[in-house]
């Protein structure tokens, strides 16, 4: 049936991502080190602040937020810009375009396999460890359900932004520069390095008007809020849905308009 081709791609992606076991181990080691640095840094920061709660976030809130942001980052980072840029440079894109599936969809589904493996091997263990260490700071209730819905939309928004930026590579043939710009903007403005609650006032308002905060800040604040106001919850999810649709349409339109740009050097 129609669904079969997607599942096949997912399976292939899972097998592919399981190939690099040593790489995964080193990534986990690197993350652990990062978490240690983050832990001590924020502990020192909160110790200097003199109060337990800063901008409505306690130390354990901040820690959960930052740790899970890293876990989400590993889970969502698909290196789409690299992949697209490289296949544009090498000319492989010509073959991908001939496949009996739309390119945007093909790219997504061939990465979906690594979602599955990353979820079980990095996100879930991290989540369990954090929940155990902070002892009940994560409220386990309906917010988990909303968190999952929110993450699904975050994945979609993140993918659309990646695809949009990857399309720019058709024009510039520069990968490194474009990718680093995207990464810097997304990690800073999405609240992945510093929770948006800490942003000073004019900047905070601006950030809430941009799509990036829907990627990390929205799901994580939903998770941390044990007993959310229905209206606030609805607003967060609604905003995410809005960006989900807008970015999908934008990236599709831009890709369609740019397809004519492709020049493939030789075969």
């Amino acid at each position: 049936m129609n669904l079969k081709k997607y599942i096949t791609l997912t399976r292939a992606g899972m097998i592919e991502s399981l190939q690099f076991r040593l790489g995964t181990l080193v990534i986990i080691a690197g993350n652990l080190l990062y978490l240690i640095v983050v832990y001590f840094l924020w502990k020192a920061i909160y110790a200097s602040a003199g109060t337990d709660t800063v901008n409505g976030m306690t130390f354990s809130d901040t820690l959960i937020y930052l740790v899970l942001a890293t876990a989400l980052f590993n889970f969502m980072e698909m290196y789409i810009v690299w992949e697209m840029g490289r296949s544009i440079q090498s000319g492989k894109i010509a073959l991908d375009l001939l496949k009996p599936m739309e390119y945007r969809r093909y790219m997504f589904w061939s990465y979906s396999g690594s979602f599955v493996t990353q979820f079980f091997f990095t996100f879930l263990p991290t989540f369990i460890v954090v929940a155990a260490v902070t002892q009940g700071a994560i409220h386990l209730g309906f917010n988990l359900l909303f968190f999952v819905i929110s993450v699904v939309m975050a994945v979609s928004i993140n993918y659309s932004i990646d695809f949009l930026v990857g399309t720019i590579c058709l024009y510039t043939e520069s990968i490194w520069g474009i990718n680093i710009m995207k990464q810097v903007i997304v990690t800073l403005l999405s609240g992945a390095t510093i929770p948006i609650a800490f942003f000073p006032e004019p900047l905070k308002t601006i950030v809430y008007f941009l799509p990036f905060q829907s990627i990390y800040n929205a799901p994580l604040s939903i998770l941390l809020e044990g007993h959310p106001q229905p209206l606030a919850l609805l607003a967060t999810l609604g905003l995410q849905l809005f960006w989900c649709i807008t970015m999908t349409i934008l990236s599709r339109l831009f890709w369609k308009a740019s397809l004519r740009q492709i020049t493939v050097n030789g075969g």
Binding site: L41, I45, S48, V54, N55, I180, M181, V184, L188, F198
Partner: peptide, 30 residues
Amino acid sequence: DFIISTIGMIFTNIAGFISFWILFQNFPSV
């Protein structure tokens, strides 16, 4: 490519500085 990469590098530095600045807007010392 050269120009875009250079801009990208400047972006990285500015973003690093901004996160630094945001942190110290909230906390006087570490």
